[in-house]
Amino acid sequence: MSTRSETIIETHQLVKSFGGVQATDKVDFALKEGELRCVIGPNGAGKSTFFKLLTGQIIPTSGKILFAGQDVTGLPSHKIARLGVGIKNQKPDVFDGLLVRENLWLAAQFAHDKAGAEHQVDKVIDRLQLGSLAHRLVGELAHGQRQWVEIGMVMAREPRLILLDEPSAGMSQDERVRTADLLKELNRTTTIVVVEHDMQFIKRIADIVTVFHRGAILREAHVDVVLKDPEVRNVYLGRTEVV
């Protein structure tokens, strides 16, 4: 994991309103390069809206977003992606009718020439241990395998920052363990933000956790502190103990 301490992405008083409802409410957020941060919160807390604001999928009502010190507020998503931000949304966004390798190549050529893209695909396949799947159609794969292919497509672009929306959703226990190990290994070279609901998965990967509630940041601390916080348990977990 990187030991660099500069802030890679930050927001200042970030607000997004929909019909008078503030989906994000004056959010001040900062992430250091090399971190693996988990973002949690109940349904409707504003987590997905926050992700979409960071990646330019939606435009903030007010406030600022800085990436590597550059003001990216209001930039379209393709320009933010080219600066080095990759996102995997909750629903897999893959090409079912193409091979795994072809999916990865399409992503890799976004940032590389033909020869470089082929080399990058080989690196991603090796890193994700997808060799046995490389020449299978994505549409034939199990849910967890499709999730790994999409993570690989994000990796193939070599972004500085990766945002993952519920990467373990729908996975078996073994698949969740493998995905947690994958993210920790990936974090050695890439800054990562993960939105997640699975508490066991969060405890496997998280250091600092940011808790959203009603569009604002409720708590931000080490995972062990956050998961024992009575207010967090009340608004998110709905119980008195996390196991």
Rank of each mutant, 00 (worst) to 15 (best):
K26G: 04
P92E: 06
V223N: 11
Q200R: 13
A169P: 07
T210G: 09
D25F: 09
V226I: 14
G69I: 07
D96T: 14
H112S: 08
G69K: 11
E196L: 05
Q129S: 12
A206K: 02
N103F: 06
G139K: 03
K16F: 13
T3A: 13
G46V: 05
A115H: 08
I208K: 15
N43C: 03
L106Q: 02
G238I: 11
K123N: 08
H119A: 15
L54R: 08
T190F: 04
P159W: 02
E102I: 12
I125A: 06
L163Q: 00
E158Q: 15
K114L: 13
D93P: 00
E196W: 00
E196C: 05
I151V: 14
K52Q: 14
E6W: 09
V121H: 05
E185D: 15
S168E: 01
V242A: 14
A142V: 10
V242W: 10
K203M: 15
L106T: 07
A115W: 03
A115G: 11
T55V: 06
I217L: 13
I80Q: 01
K88Q: 09
K91N: 15
Q13P: 08
A156L: 03
H135I: 09
K228W: 01
A216H: 01
A30N: 07
L227V: 09
G19V: 00
G84P: 10
K26L: 14
G34H: 02
H222D: 15
G46Q: 00
L83D: 04
H143Y: 15
G19E: 01
V72G: 08
S48I: 01
V242D: 06
Q57M: 12
P167E: 06
W105V: 12
R157H: 08
E6Q: 11
L183R: 02
E185K: 12
V209C: 10
H12Y: 11
N234M: 12
R219F: 11
S77D: 07
H222Q: 13
E175F: 04
G97Q: 15
L130A: 12
L106V: 07
I208C: 06
R176D: 01
L133N: 05
V223G: 09
V149G: 01
R146C: 04
L137W: 10
G84V: 03
I40D: 05
E35D: 15
V15A: 05
Q120L: 06
